[in-house]
């Protein structure tokens, strides 16, 4: 199987979908001609599909998002890019007030089959105006689907599903994962949105996580395994719709739940998972539910401060041990 990065997997999905369906076009700042010359999520697409289908835009996030809303209702399949998660806030009116709500406001008559790709994540030393995981904001907007892949293979299959989905889908890609390779099937395949994946089976504790934190979960699980604690890792892949069944089944099996996410704590999506367990698997829990998250601070720039921000395997191990 080919070993490619998440960024390259996104590229493959875009390329294949653009070949498959003439209605798919991409737009964003530097999606055609970029300041980065290495392989990236959109590199080579301008050369293959030309400027009609690969639109470099001005620095205008509200415009980019509105472009997607308007083009999608007219039958096109836009995949637009917002460079970094914090800049999503500029596009938020078009996405949250319009893309998410206009179908409802049409009484189910119109549809808005668009995808917004957003890069995210701390660990790049760029500080809080580039690194700020806002997935919980998006998940809090009914009408949007929210997808956050952790592996290149998931990214390819999920992005294809997102493009073929008839709803607005927010597709959030961790920037560091962009450079991490993994096995990716060469053929055309999709992974359904709304289906979590048990990335590692286990019996003693369930760790629910997504995106880059999956790697942290694996590191902790490896160490705990040696101490006789068997960890089951559930990679959500999609926050909305949420695969409640897989989470609950795992919690019922292990009786313990820890949620790990890179976003800050208060109002983070981890609270939603904890509430789910409390509402629907309370009887199965042998210990309190714990969230391992970033502290409630903006992402600082200096290396030791940014390291402190990032929840790591030691934090997760410590949390899990408290449950026994």
């Amino acid at each position: 199987m080919q070993q490619i990065t998440l960024g390259e997997a996104v590229n493959q999905a875009l390329r294949e979908e653009m070949r498959r369906d003439e209605r798919v076009f991409i737009a964003g700042e530097g999606v055609g001609v970029s300041i980065h010359s290495g392989p990236g999520a959109t590199s080579g697409l301008l050369e293959e599909f030309g400027p009609r289908r690969v639109k470099d835009t001005p620095v205008s996030e509200a415009g980019i998002a509105g472009l997607a809303v308007g083009a999608s209702v007219m039958g096109l399949l836009p995949v637009v890019e917002v460079m970094f998660n914090p800049f999503f806030t500029i596009a938020a009116d078009q996405i949250v007030n319009h893309a998410a709500k206009l179908r409802y406001l049409s009484g189910g008559k119109s549809k808005f089959p668009l995808v917004v790709r957003i890069k995210t994540g701390a660990g790049i030393g760029a500080g809080c105006q580039h690194s700020h995981n806002l997935e919980a904001w998006l998940a809090h907007s009914p009408g949007l689907k929210v997808v956050m892949p952790a592996t290149p293979a998931d990214a390819k299959g999920l992005l294809k599903s997102a493009i073929r989905d008839e709803n607005p889908v927010i597709f959030i890609e961790d920037i560091i994962l962009h450079w991490v390779p993994g096995p990716v099937p060469e053929e055309d395949y999709t992974i359904p949105i709304g289906v979590a994946d048990i990335k590692k089976p286990g019996t003693d504790v369930t760790v629910v996580t997504w995106s880059k934190a999956l790697g942290t979960a694996f590191k902790a699980a490896g160490q705990l395994e040696q101490e006789g604690i068997s960890v089951e890792i559930v990679d959500l892949r999609s926050l909305v719709p949420l695969d409640e069944a897989t989470i609950l089944e795992s919690v019922r099996k292990t009786g313990r739940l820890v949620i790990l996410h890179e976003a800050t704590r208060t109002g983070g999506f981890g609270g939603e998972i904890a509430a789910l367990a409390a509402e629907k698997a309370f009887d199965a829990l042998k210990a309190p539910v714990i969230r391992v998250t970033a502290p409630d601070i903006p992402v600082p720039c200096s290396k030791p401060l940014e390291d402190f921000y990032m929840p790591n395997e030691a934090d997760l191990i410590e949390a899990i041990k408290r449950l026994f």
Partner: peptide, 16 residues
């Protein structure tokens, strides 16, 4: 350099 003695105690870095 991300040091404590910088204008913003390392919170900002070059960009802010």
């Amino acid at each position: 350099f991300g040091r404590r003695t910088g204008y913003n105690k390392g919170k900002s870095g070059t960009l802010h």
